[in-house]
Simulated assay, not measured.
Amino acid sequence: MLRKTLTLALWQGARHADAGLDELSDIAVIIADAAKAGADLLVFPEGYLTGYYRPGLRAADLAGVDAALDRLGRVIADAGIMVVMGTHRVWERALVNAAIVFDTRGRQVGAYHKRALFGAWERATFEPGTLPLRFDCGGFRVGLAICYDLEFPELIRAEAEARTDLVVTPTALMAPHGRIAELLPAARALENQIFVAYANRTGREHERAFVGKSCICGPDGGMLAVAGEAPEMLVAQLDRRAIRTAREEASYLEDLGRLRENSG
């Protein structure tokens, strides 16, 4: 029997390249705090492990990422929760902007590569991903997006059509684009009648200032939890019955199918 509820945690905060890959005690504290809060799943921001904005980034700069992910897996196993970690890494000799999914035993069960690369720096630095990634957590079907991916309604609609209950989005949204955090996660949740979570960075990297405003949105577009601009842990309990309730009067997915049929 499928569970009806999932406790989701998002970490909104800053971690920079100079934090290094050898010492992960700061991340271990966050994971332990999420476990104490009863979280089934914890989501970190985009590029959190490595730092996000790194001009001149080369493969050699990421040589320690895989070993760090292995160490992180052991931390996660001790906590006993699932984790999505944003990181840059080398994949098949290309640099990718990734979100790594760990199960409760600390095993890597999937890696999502950002498909919609934002701006000149990302396009010059990373190879875009081409495939979605979905995984199960506590009976919920979870899809992934990274930051700019969420700004394409077609990508999130594909997740809803694949019967995901929740899309989690590691993010590095910067000024002056704060309106995106205020509007689009809720819109994507509402128009697909699913849960959408948006885990953003805080602080600065070089000239870029991140706006925070992380949120967890329900299938009616309502905010279940929302952060300001400072580091913060968001926790919300998601109830799958809210998806059914949102779709009782009008299901956008079913009605879209009818529109497609009638349009020939």
Rank of each mutant, 00 (worst) to 15 (best):
F135R: 02
Q193P: 07
I76A: 03
G129L: 12
F102K: 05
R188H: 00
T130E: 08
R204C: 09
Y112W: 14
L173A: 03
D70A: 15
F126I: 00
R123W: 05
R163P: 00
A199I: 07
D78C: 03
Y148F: 06
I76K: 08
G73R: 11
Y112G: 05
A160G: 06
A77H: 15
E159F: 04
A124Q: 10
T104N: 09
E122R: 00
M82P: 02
N200Q: 01
E127F: 05
Q108I: 15
H177R: 13
I156Q: 08
L183K: 15
G73H: 10
V101Q: 06
R179D: 14
G203A: 15
L69I: 13
G119A: 12
D165N: 00
L95H: 00
A186V: 02
G73T: 07
E92C: 10
G139A: 04
E151L: 11
A111H: 11
A145M: 14
R201I: 10
A145S: 12
F195W: 07
R188A: 08
A199Q: 01
Y198A: 05
C137N: 07
R105V: 04
R89S: 06
V84L: 06
A158P: 03
P128I: 08
L155K: 05
H177K: 09
C147L: 11
G80Q: 07
Q108S: 14
A98K: 09
D70W: 11
I194F: 07
A186G: 13
A79K: 07
F102C: 07
A124K: 06
V83G: 00
H113A: 10
L131E: 11
R107N: 11
D78W: 09
A187D: 04
R163M: 10
E159L: 04
L95D: 02
I180F: 09
M82V: 10
G110E: 03
